[in-house]
């Protein structure tokens, strides 16, 4: 099958690759770029384990063709923090026991990262609705919600301090 030439900015780095038109973004990220943080849980857009950010929106990369990401800015969990400086969401998920098996966690945190940009000061209900596209089988969500609310508070107070 003929391949397309695709350029993307992934976690701030420019990437160029050849992709079959039918190839999914999640497979390009995981197989070609070695970014195994996003996971595949259902391949039908239900579970959200593959959630990444594309051009400022949360997308489920199992139902986005790599071709659709041509020219896009893509952020995965690997782009949110690093071992020397975790993102506040990563810290709060640890602090509030917002994960167990860890399989949904990259998608959860990536989605929460976007949610808090869409709504920096959400209520618990808004967090629950905003995260409804991401399934978790282990935690029952209670501590995920707690972690996201704590991260929001932390980010807001950091913002205030900066002003």
């Amino acid at each position: 099958m003929s391949k397309m030439h695709i350029k993307m900015t992934v976690n701030g780095q420019k990437k160029e690759l050849l992709s079959e038109p039918r190839q999914l973004l999640i497979h390009v990220l995981r197989e070609e770029l070695g970014l195994t943080g996003p996971h595949i849980g259902c391949e039908t857009s239900h579970c959200g384990a593959c959630t990444v950010e594309m051009n400022g929106k949360s997308v489920k990369s199992c139902t986005v063709f790599a071709a659709q990401a041509d020219g896009a800015e893509v952020t995965t969990i690997e782009g949110l923090g690093n071992p020397d400086g975790l993102h506040v969401l990563q810290e709060m998920f640890k602090e509030h026991h917002g994960l167990q098996c860890g399989f949904c966690t990259p998608g959860m945190i990536t989605r929460a990262h976007r949610l808090l940009q869409e709504n920096p000061n959400p209520t618990e209900e808004e967090v629950r609705f905003g995260m409804a596209g991401n399934l978790c089988r282990c935690t029952g969500y209670q501590n995920i919600v707690k972690a996201i609310l704590a991260a929001a508070a932390e980010m807001n107070s950091a913002k205030e301090a900066a002003q």
Partner: peptide
Amino acid sequence: RKRVEDARFTQGKGNYVDD
């Protein structure tokens, strides 16, 4: 005690079979 597993998992550095 906070979990020692979480540093890896929150950074997308788990190692599952499909990885």
